[in-house]
Structures are given as C-alpha cells and as structure tokens.
Amino acid sequence: MKTQFKTLIAAALALSATFAMADAYPDYARVVSSTAIVQRVNTPRQECWTENQQVQTQNQAGGVVGSIIGGVAGGVLGHQVGGGRGKDVATVAGAIGGALIGNEVGSGQPQVQNQQVQRCRQVDAWQDQVTGYHVTYDYKGRQFSANLPQQPGDRIPVEVNVTPR
C-alpha cells in the first residue's frame, strides 16, 4: 500500500512539474499580407419629392353669391309681373325661385386648383463595409493566419507558449 501511495505521489509531482515548466511570453510576428473582409450591407433610405396635382373642388362661396344674385334678380323680375297683391306674391316667388336657381348655378361649377403633394418611396442603398482583415503573418519561419478587427500594420503582437514534450 505504501508503494502504491508513493507511486501516486511521484506521478502527481511529475505532472505538476511539467505544468510548472510551461512558459508564455509576448513577441512580434512579421505581417506577410492583409486583405480586407468586405460585406455588402443594405441601409435603406427614403426619397421624397413634391408634385403639383390638380384637384377639383365645389365652389362653396359661389352658391351663396349665386343665391343672393338670383334672389335679387328673381325678385325684380317677379315685381314686374302682376298687379296689387299679386305683385307682392310674384316678387316673393321670383326671389325664392331666383335664389334656388342662383344657388344651383353658382355651386354647380367645380373649380380646378393646383395643390402641392409630397410623395415618398423607400430606396435600397447597398454599401460595401469592411468588417475586418484576414492577416497572414510569419513567426520564426512558419506562416499563420488570423482574422483581425483592424488593419495590423507591419507586425503584430503574438503570445508564445513554450511547453516541454
């Protein structure tokens, strides 16, 4: 039993000694090439413009003005007809009839107006965006590669791990 325990302790010490001898240190590697990684991105935007558009409207004021002018004209014409009490009835009837006809004529004429209207539409706007760099570098005669978020320059920092075999 003591022999097994001693063997187990020796193995544990040998294993921990291996980890204790492992070492890491910073160094620099020479950059061989650096290529931009490009991605197409859509950033939609809105385009707007103003157009003239013809709009038909009913002449609201024309109906009132037409009623007044028609009523006066009808009253004058009705006053010319008849005599005595009939003259008063004809004047009132002419005024009412003229007002109705004037309102119809005045409001029945549509007006055309130019109105400015804003129109918009969404337009795709594709752009190329650099999302990183594919870098090839040389360290002590061996080439390695990695994707980096920015342009590295002539050399890049590396971490060297030394572990016994």
Rank of each mutant, 00 (worst) to 15 (best):
L148Q: 11
P110Q: 08
D138M: 11
V76T: 06
G78L: 01
I96P: 02
K140Y: 08
Y137H: 13
G97Y: 04
D128W: 06
G141T: 12
N103F: 09
V123S: 06
G97V: 09
G141L: 12
G82F: 06
V130G: 09
C120D: 04
G78R: 01
T136H: 08
Y133R: 05
N114I: 00
R121E: 15
A95P: 02
C120E: 04
G98Q: 05
Q80N: 11
S145M: 07
V112S: 07
V160L: 09
A95I: 02
T91F: 04
P149H: 08
G141D: 14
G97E: 03
D128N: 14
G86R: 11
Q151V: 03
G132V: 08
Y139V: 06
H79A: 10
S107R: 09
Q115G: 00
R121Q: 14
Y139F: 15
V123Y: 06
D128A: 13
T163S: 13
R155D: 15
Q80R: 08
A125C: 03
Q111I: 09
V76N: 04
G141S: 14
G83M: 12
G84S: 12
G102N: 07
V158C: 13
R165H: 10
Q127I: 07
V135K: 11
V92N: 04
L100T: 09
L100Q: 01
K140M: 11
Q109F: 07
V92G: 06
V130K: 08
P164T: 07
Q122M: 08
G97W: 02
V89M: 09
W126T: 05
Q109D: 05
Q113S: 02
R121K: 11
I96D: 00
V89W: 12
S107C: 03
V117N: 02
Y137N: 12
I156C: 09
E104W: 14
V160Q: 10
H79S: 10
D128L: 07
H134K: 13
K87R: 15
P110A: 04
T163E: 13
V162I: 13
A90M: 15
Q127M: 10
D138K: 10
Q127R: 14
D128Q: 14
Y139Q: 04
D88V: 12
Q122G: 03
G94A: 04
G102I: 05
I101T: 11
N103H: 08
Q115I: 00
Q129G: 01
Q115W: 00
A90Y: 02
R85W: 14
T91P: 01
Q129A: 12
Q109K: 10
A99L: 00
I96K: 01
N161Y: 15
G108N: 11
D124R: 01
Q150T: 14
P164G: 12
A93C: 05
Y139P: 07
H134L: 07
V92R: 04
T91H: 03
G108I: 06
V158N: 09
F144L: 08
Q127T: 08
V130Y: 06
A99H: 01
D128C: 08
A146R: 14
A90L: 04
R119Q: 09
D124V: 01
